[in-house]
Computed example of a mutant assay.
Amino acid sequence: MSRRDREGAARRLMEGTPPPVPPDLYVEVVRRGSRMMRRRRAVRRLMWLLLVAAVVVFAVWAATVQPWVEPPSETTPPVTGW
């Protein structure tokens, strides 16, 4: 089949009437779409919950460990007896 034949066949398909849609297709699409939206919403809420939990865990860890404080020096012994 040459390019010209393929173009002609494609034009005939596009110019013709579209095939009939099954009557129960709309109901099935709405059902699947609403299920997909519920799943996305649940996943989004779960991700926010995990993010908030991670922030809380990090804040508690940072408050107890205090990583910004410099640890005491252990290389020089304390000077006593002056």
Score class of each variant (00 low, 15 high):
51 L>W: 03
8 G>Q: 13
56 V>M: 01
18 P>G: 11
56 V>S: 01
56 V>N: 00
8 G>N: 15
9 A>S: 06
50 L>I: 04
77 P>I: 03
46 L>T: 05
32 R>I: 09
82 W>H: 13
45 R>M: 09
28 E>V: 06
61 W>Q: 04
30 V>H: 10
71 P>D: 08
57 V>A: 14
16 G>F: 00
40 R>V: 12
29 V>F: 06
33 G>F: 01
6 R>N: 08
37 M>G: 09
32 R>F: 08
1 M>F: 01
44 R>E: 14
11 R>Y: 01
27 V>E: 15
74 E>K: 09
70 E>Q: 13
51 L>M: 08
9 A>P: 02
54 A>I: 04
41 R>V: 10
9 A>E: 05
28 E>G: 10
7 E>H: 10
41 R>H: 12
76 T>W: 10
34 S>I: 14
57 V>R: 10
43 V>T: 14
72 P>K: 05
8 G>I: 06
69 V>D: 11
80 T>I: 12
8 G>P: 03
66 Q>N: 13
73 S>I: 06
56 V>W: 00
50 L>W: 01
48 W>Y: 11
42 A>K: 10
74 E>L: 13
48 W>C: 09
22 P>E: 06
36 M>Q: 15
60 V>N: 03
17 T>I: 09
4 R>V: 07
7 E>V: 10
74 E>I: 13
25 L>Q: 12
26 Y>K: 14
52 V>R: 00
74 E>P: 03
14 M>A: 14
12 R>A: 05
34 S>F: 15
25 L>E: 10
31 R>T: 08
59 A>S: 07
32 R>P: 01
73 S>L: 06
58 F>E: 14
24 D>W: 08
32 R>D: 11
28 E>Q: 14
77 P>Q: 08
36 M>W: 15
58 F>K: 13
18 P>K: 02
13 L>W: 09
10 A>I: 07
40 R>M: 14
49 L>Q: 00
27 V>S: 15
12 R>I: 01
41 R>Y: 09
3 R>Y: 13
73 S>E: 15
12 R>Q: 04
52 V>W: 01
41 R>I: 07
32 R>K: 14
81 G>E: 04
16 G>A: 02
68 W>G: 01
49 L>I: 04
